[in-house]
Write a protein that binds this DNA or RNA. Sequence first.
DNA 1: GCTGTAGAACTTTTT
DNA 2: GTTCTACAGC
Length: 812
Amino acid sequence: MGHSGFYNSAMSSIFDDDFFAPTDPMANVGDTLLHGLNDEQMRAVTLPDEHALILAGAGSGKTRVLTTRIAWLLQQQRVSPGGIMAVTFTNKAAKEMTARLSAMLPINVRGMWIGTFHGLCNRFLRAHYKVANLPQGFQILDTQDQLSAIKRLYKQFNINDDQFPAKQMQWFIGGCKEEGQRPGDVPVRDAESRKKVDIYQLYEEQCQREGVVDFGELMLRSYEILRDHPLVRQHYQRRFRHILVDEFQDTNRLQYLWLKQFVPEVGDAVPRNAIFAVGDDDQSIYAFRGARVGNMNDFVTELKVQHQIKLEQNYRSYSNILDSANALISHNTRRLGKNLRTDQGSGEPVRVVELPGDLAEAQWIVDEIKQLVRDGSARKEIAILYRSNAQSRVIESTLFNHAIPYRVYGGLRFFERAEIKHALAYLRLLDNPRDDTSFLRVVNFPPRGIGARTLEQLQDAARSGNTALVDAVQQVPGKAGANLASFVAKIDAMREQADQITLKEIVELVLDNSGLLEHYRNERDGADRVENLQELVNAAESFVSLEGFGKESAGMHQLDTSAAPAWPGESDAAAQDAANSASAAEVLPDGETLSPLAAFLTHAALEAGDNQAQAGQDAVQLMTVHAAKGLEFNNVFISGLEEGLFPHENSLNDYDGLEEERRLMYVAITRARQRLYLSHAQTRLLHGQTRYNIRSRFFDELPEECLKWITPKRAGFADAMPGYEGRWGGNQGDSWNRDVRQAVGQGSAEVVRKSEPGHGLKKGMRVFHTKFGEGTVQMLEGSGADAKAQINFSRHGVKWLALSVAKLTPID
DNA sequence: GCTGTAGAACTTTTT
DNA sequence: GTTCTACAGC
């Protein structure tokens, strides 16, 4: 059943009523539902209504299990669509789930809550905006907006950016929220942390005053409402019989706490419901942004999960690739334990190659790609993966020189582009004149004679009156004040017109009246920007049409505030419950609808859009390993497999870091279906200087029988390090690594065998540190892993550094 | 108020 | 080596 069928059924709403009637023509769809599932998948799909953890290995049909489970619940278990919530991390995943589901069943997906954590929280807060103490049309700050909001705060309160870098503060605030901490909950140790918490507090007040929320706030506030309002909580606990979670290993603390709110406690007098969590601890690669693999264990113990199923049958790769992945990941110690298997045969060996430099590496990859294409491979089935973005440049230019089409993932997304942000800022001001972030963004863009001086005056006035910028405009005297007033008048005029026209027309109006379009037309390289603005008009137009068809994808822009389920029985119970309670008002959603403009702005904030420029073209795919998660290709190149790069040097200081790097490598390997190529270079240009690297330790963790060395295998990490068995051994690895870097750095690219232990530093020696620059060793203390050195840096003064951690290079 | 130049950063990233 | 940010000068 295709999309058109789905829309038809959704629009006529026949299925909502008749879907399960015996006469229904689609009643036999379910017969084929479970067809083709293996035993493990079948067991998972048909588990009873209890909490379950599904350990789904790479390529094991995870999404299929999730969607089939939902379909099975709807059809066989007669669960109402309104009783199901499915949570993902990315819009892409949510969309895919929705699409697959509607292809599987002629069901109205709209009643279901399928979406990202943030999308669902947004939906929740819009529905309960009064309880949430937010304006109904609250706007969402993306990462850029959040940073500029913090910087604005710094100006206003004279906070020193050198002392508390705004970026770091942003990270701090985000981190607190992810842990579920309000300013009052953050432990304060010293004056510095006191100040940070104060800034956090000020930031919160500013957001509240302006009626905006950041991403973390969407989650945190939703969580707090559920936690603090038993009636609201019980309403949703009653409603959602089944909660399905994708990529569970990537959940942070707050997301886990939020999920748990949906599970009734003993004595809550709410019927039992079930969380069906799908995840893979071996693919947990987002600890750096707060993901807690530990949530998997906590989930099992705290909710007494009785059902755990491992999906270990892989449908993607040949066994040489799979065995490599299995062998590699077995070197991690903290695992739930899983071993992928395949029926596909061994396939080609994994090819390994060593090259003299990054350029030669790129050249080699390009040569191989040419061969693959000659042999009939589609270019889009070839992926080049790397650990960090900086590595793409050499590869890009080499591909370019050979006229091979390629596509780089990452970079700016559509809604993050400056010109789009400017346009959105105008649109936001139409919706909420008190949005100071947007006000400042465009008050003088395009330039209209409002300078920094004027704005300072304005901000002073606003601060002393404790008002929004827009309300302080009259207080600025003279020409400057007049300019400001005319800006505000212009916005007001647009707002007035906006009431009577379509969303598309509003966007066009703003682009014209603001002067944005004009500005970019006159700019030398403005053609792309003009095109993007035109694209924004198109986006607005199609957004309207989506609304018109009542299609609700992952974005949750369709604000279906009917939190009370449409299913007979359930809705009665919920309504009854609400009616019986004294504070029914807070339980039931505040059912007004959002204006199309506000909905569009929300959509823009929650879904930053594509960043793939030339999509659709048959091009070689370039991306970081992180970006490759969830994708698969016939041919995969993993480049830059060198110590310091992959595993990345910044991760080597702690054990968890190395294990995460290994999981990252595991993810990279398991992207390949047929052919896998691993390459490393002896030298590489990084940060403007040539670095000499030895091959990654990960090579020593792969089974020799699966590999084919294109260039001779030479001494590597394990050979040079006695006692290394592919396992992390405290800090010796790093000090050894430094020795090699020093030795190799002195000229020979040949791998050096470990000579003598220790750091090799002496008093009076000149050393170089990547952060602090040059300095002189003044004192040495301790030995081995505890060795420390006192170094006098010419630029940064005297510092004590732990030699097992700090990266020092002697200068001669 | 805009433009050019010096200085600093620089792993990975979704919402 | 590149790229973004911040401040000084026109």
